[in-house]
Amino acid sequence: MTRLQGKIAIVTGVSRPGGIGAAICRAFAAEGADLFFTHLYDYDKNIYPNDANESWPDLFAGELHQSGGKVGHMELDLALPGSGLLLLEEVRKTVGVPTILVNNATYSVDADFRQLTEALIDAHCAVNIRGTFMLSAEFARMLEAEQSTGGKLGGRIINLTSGQGKGPMPGNLAYAATKGAISIFTESLAAELAPLCITVNAVDPGPTDSGWMSEEVKEALLPQFPMGRIGLPGDAARLITFLASDDSEWITGQIIHSRGGF
C-alpha cells in the first residue's frame, strides 16, 4: 500500500474521530503520504457536541505518525481572509511542498426560507465558496511557481460536495447553494489547470454516518440505500485516495456521486 508514497497531502476540516476528514487522513497515511490537516474545534463543538474534543487533533497526529510519515496540523478558520496562504506557508515549513489538496472543511447550518438571514448566507459563502476557491487557487499558484523553477510537479485537488445537483435540499438553502457553487468551480478550474497536470475533481459521498445521524435518521434513510447499509466515512476515503493517486491522472473535471445507489 504505497500509492501515495513520497506525496504530501493537505486535508481540511479534520476535527473529529468519526468524520470523513479523519477517514481520508487514515487512508492517505496507510498509502504512505505525509500529511497536514486542519481543524476548528469552536465550530465542531456546536454541531457535533458528542464527537468534538479539543485535544483530539494532537492524539490523531500521533496515530497518523505511526504509519511512518510526517504529520502536521493547525487550527484554521477558512472564513478568515488570507487563510489559504497562511495554511500553505505552514505546510511547507512543517512537512514540505504539498501536491494533494482535499477541501473537506465545510460550514453547514440548517435554514429554510423563514430562517435565512444575510449573516447566515455570508457565513456559508465565507467557508464553502471563498475559503475553498482561494485555497485551491493559492495551491495551484504555488505548484505553478514550483514548475517554473524546474520542478516537475503535477497535483490533485479534490473537493467535497453534497449531491445538491441530484435534487432539492429543502431546509438547507445556503448550504445547498454554496456546495453547488463548488461543483461549478470544480469543472471550470479543472480546464484551467489541466495544462499544469493538476487534476480537479469533486466527490459527493451521499448521506454518510459521520456522527450527525440519529437513530431515527438512520431508520428513515436505510430503505433508500439499495445496497442495504448507510454510507460510512471509509467509503468516501477509498475513492478520494484513488483520486489522489497517480492512477487517476486521466480523470479531471468530474463530480463523482459515490453514494451506494442512494
Results as ranks from 00 to 15, higher is better:
residue 176 A to L: 08
residue 233 P to W: 04
residue 12 T to E: 03
residue 254 Q to C: 08
residue 221 L to G: 09
residue 125 C to R: 15
residue 181 A to C: 12
residue 180 G to T: 04
residue 132 T to S: 11
residue 1 M to L: 11
residue 24 I to A: 06
residue 45 K to G: 00
residue 43 Y to Q: 12
residue 168 P to G: 02
residue 218 K to C: 14
residue 213 M to T: 08
residue 168 P to E: 03
residue 16 R to D: 09
residue 119 A to K: 13
residue 60 F to E: 15
residue 6 G to C: 05
residue 218 K to I: 15
residue 200 V to R: 00
residue 143 L to W: 00
residue 25 C to I: 01
residue 116 L to P: 05
residue 222 L to K: 14
residue 132 T to D: 04
residue 163 G to H: 06
residue 224 Q to D: 12
residue 219 E to K: 14
residue 106 T to E: 02
residue 54 E to H: 07
residue 166 K to R: 15
residue 255 I to E: 08
residue 26 R to V: 02
residue 171 G to A: 04
residue 135 L to M: 08
residue 81 P to M: 11
residue 57 P to Q: 09
residue 115 Q to A: 09
residue 201 N to M: 06
residue 142 M to I: 14
residue 60 F to D: 15
residue 232 L to S: 13
residue 238 R to P: 02
residue 4 L to Y: 14
residue 101 L to W: 10
residue 132 T to N: 06
residue 63 E to I: 12
residue 69 G to N: 11
residue 252 T to K: 01
residue 156 R to F: 10
residue 128 N to R: 10
residue 161 T to F: 01
residue 58 D to A: 15
residue 143 L to A: 03
residue 57 P to M: 03
residue 141 R to F: 08
residue 151 G to T: 01
residue 75 E to C: 05
residue 182 I to S: 03
residue 90 E to I: 02
residue 238 R to W: 01
residue 109 V to E: 14
residue 95 V to R: 15
